[in-house]
């Protein structure tokens, strides 16, 4: 039995989104959608987070911020790119200051399409990411086991 799937805490960061997706991420927390049903809590602190939800495209200024936040999240962790801007840059992809989707800065596990992404699809994206989170944990455990097995062998 694993608890990871039952208690994903999200960290939300607005990269260069127009706010449309941001407020939809927040709307997920509120009574109509209420993601706390799935144990999802918006924790606002990278050190406590499991799922990194990013909206908007990457620009030169927030690249470092996003990498920094990503590094602060303890393993296992997944990244969900919400909205078309986070996926590819969207309508702003030709802007000089946008270097593309979130995957140009950090590895992305789930892409949620839409402009603005609907709360239903955001929830779906986060729930899908939980499967990946579980896989990552299994891999992490496996690595730990092989490591200890290796030391014992010696």
């Amino acid at each position: 039995m694993t608890y990871l799937k039952r208690s994903p805490w999200i960290l939300h960061y607005d990269a260069s989104s127009c706010n449309g997706c941001d407020i939809e991420v927040l709307a997920c927390l509120t009574p109509l959608y209420d993601v706390e049903r799935f144990g999802i809590v918006n924790c606002g602190n990278p050190k406590h987070a499991d799922v990194f939800v990013v909206t908007g495209g990457i620009n030169e200024q927030n690249k470092a911020v996003i990498r920094n936040l990503y590094d602060q999240i303890p393993d296992p962790k997944v990244v969900v790119a919400v909205g078309i801007c986070a996926t590819s840059g969207g309508v702003f992809r030709e802007c000089y200051n946008i270097s593309g989707g979130i995957d140009t800065a950090i590895p992305v596990d789930v892409y949620v399409p839409g402009c603005a992404a609907r709360p239903e699809s955001i929830i779906d994206g986060i729930v899908q990411s939980l499967g990946i989170l579980e896989e990552k944990r299994a891999k992490m455990l496996g690595r730990k086991r092989t490591k200890t097995a290796g030391t014992e062998g010696r």
Binding site: A15, N59, N62, N97
Partner: peptide, 14 residues
């Protein structure tokens, strides 16, 4: 400011 500067005003040319 500048973390979400996109420069979208320039897109009028495109």
């Amino acid at each position: 400011i500048g973390y979400i500067h996109r420069g979208l005003e320039l897109l009028v040319a495109k």
